[in-house]
Design a protein around this nucleic acid. Structure first.
Ligand SMILES: NC(=O)c1ccc[n+]([C@@H]2O[C@H](COP(=O)([O-])OP(=O)(O)OC[C@H]3O[C@@H](n4cnc5c(N)ncnc54)[C@H](O)[C@@H]3O)[C@@H](O)[C@H]2O)c1
Ligand SMILES: NC(=O)c1ccc[n+]([C@@H]2O[C@H](COP(=O)([O-])OP(=O)(O)OC[C@H]3O[C@@H](n4cnc5c(N)ncnc54)[C@H](O)[C@@H]3O)[C@@H](O)[C@H]2O)c1
Lengths: 216, 216
DNA sequence: TTTTGGTTGTTAATTTTTTCACGTTGTGCA
DNA sequence: TGCACAACGTGAAAAAATTAACAACCAAAA
């Protein structure tokens, strides 16, 4: 019988990813151990919260020496990463898509953007940031050949819903969506919409909020 | 005496921004009324949650007719927006910065990117996406002249901390940070770090998680 | 007019998340 | 060795967020 995995909250996953980024950073600087309160600073949280998060990955910290950086990286990886490198596709090679492609492709060890897609014939067939850009017609085939199950969606908002449907039909299991719209798709596909306008509006709001708190 | 504003959670602010985006969308389509359960779908939430969020803006829905789209847009705006258009600066006009500049500048009614900055002399003095790109040396002056209190930070990660310090010195009150690093600055500056790698790792993680839930 | 059906505003209950608190443990030093 | 210190792991408490529940209300149909 498969052991029942307790489900881990989205918030914890976010923080684990950030811990790992920081851990790799300090590892490169030669640090081999880290305390919970150091990790706490990176996520603007508390040491207790960090310890609790790390319990999820099966903690093995050591009193008064803290956590071992290297094994923590491995353990977080065991939880977050797939056994093999995850192949990701980028759909929509416009201004944002190109930036994202350049930023990610070939840079990460746990995932990689292996193919790009666009409906504009001028962009298809070319190599962009070291990755081939295919026409949308080839999507299904390339997805299957490369076992792609995650896509980054960066097409115009009017096209997003339609393209998402295509992706689902091609067997995608998760979409990181940059188009500012809610995508309604099959239930078991995980959609994460990253709405930059919302993020900026929030930032602006809290810039004033902070001010009010100071004054009030 | 100023009335004590109850503080509103970050989550609620996020959703209000998304409700508004959707409201404007359906307003353009000619809809004049909306129900809480329609808004709920857009944020993948429940109707109760929507009604609760809307209480924060002073709700004035009507039984069995729902909410009036137009007045809801205005009321959310009263809460989220400043009295005048908020002037925002973009710092770091690279691949991502250019995409962001093109996406936002001149497109929004409640805020606008009015100036860009870069340390690369080749980019300074030019007009990029309709906005002037200044040298970093002019930052303080341009910030004061344009009453800029919010900045989007899109410089390389190694530069982020240093540039953030410059921004704080220039009087910025909030930073939307795209560099994947924790910025430690003065306490009363609101920092919101948007870590795309984390967002993608989360997406990949939950793509597998969904699968497990199905199987388990 | 009265009933029916569906929605809002709001309080109460529940669930989730965070924080606290403290016993335990490893380290370093006298 | 023994003591002081600081950090960990974790159950319990607290806080925050979400969901449920329901009276009041409105519109439309009977
Ligand atoms: N640029 C930004 O900084 C930014 C910020 C926030 C959100 N977004 C969102 O991200 C998305 C992309 O933004 P952008 O600035 O890169 O836009 P863009 O217009 O520069 O790029 C869109 C790309 O999608 C391609 N495309 C159009 N229809 C397609 C289809 N049906 N199938 C496949 N490809 C198609 C186009 O050929 C183009 O290359 C938009 O939804 C936008 O709202 C962008
Ligand atoms: N491109 C992406 O899609 C993407 C995704 C996630 C995160 N990021 C992050 O966003 C940031 C920008 O990414 P990018 O791809 O646009 O990088 P980029 O190298 O294309 O652009 C960086 C820009 O910053 C400028 N710059 C460098 N030092 C500066 C300084 N001290 N002051 C002012 N300007 C300076 C450079 O001249 C350049 O124009 C990076 O921190 C990156 O990690 C980018």
């Amino acid at each position: 019988m498969l052991k029942m995995k307790k489900k881990i909250s989205e918030r914890t996953i976010e923080r684990l990813s950030i811990y790992r980024r920081y851990l790799k950073e300090i590892q490169a600087q030669g640090k081999s151990r880290v305390y919970s309160h150091e990790l706490a600073k990176v996520v603007s949280g508390t040491a207790a919260q960090v310890r609790r998060d790390l319990m999820e990955v099966g903690c093995n910290g050591c009193s008064s020496k803290g956590y071992e950086v290297e094994s923590l990286i491995i353990e977080i990886g065991d939880l977050l990463d797939c056994s093999e490198v995850e192949n990701v596709a980028l759909v929509g090679v416009g201004n944002l898509g190109r930036a994202v492609l350049g930023f990610f492709s070939g840079k990460k060890e746990n995932f990689d953007i292996v193919a790009a897609f666009d409906s504009n014939p001028d962009k298809c067939g070319r190599i962009i940031c070291g990755r081939r850009c295919y026409h949308m017609d080839d999507l299904q085939e390339v997805f299957q050949k490369n076992r792609i199950s995650t896509a980054i969606l960066a097409v115009p908002v009017e096209e997003a819903e339609k393209v998402a449907k295509t992706l689902v039909e091609a067997g995608v299991r998760a979409i990181l969506n940059f188009a500012p719209t809610h995508l309604t798709v099959n239930n078991d596909v995980f959609i994460h919409t990253l709405d930059m306008t919302m993020e900026l509006e929030k930032t602006i709001f809290f810039s004033r909020q902070n001010l009010n708190l100071k004054e009030g």
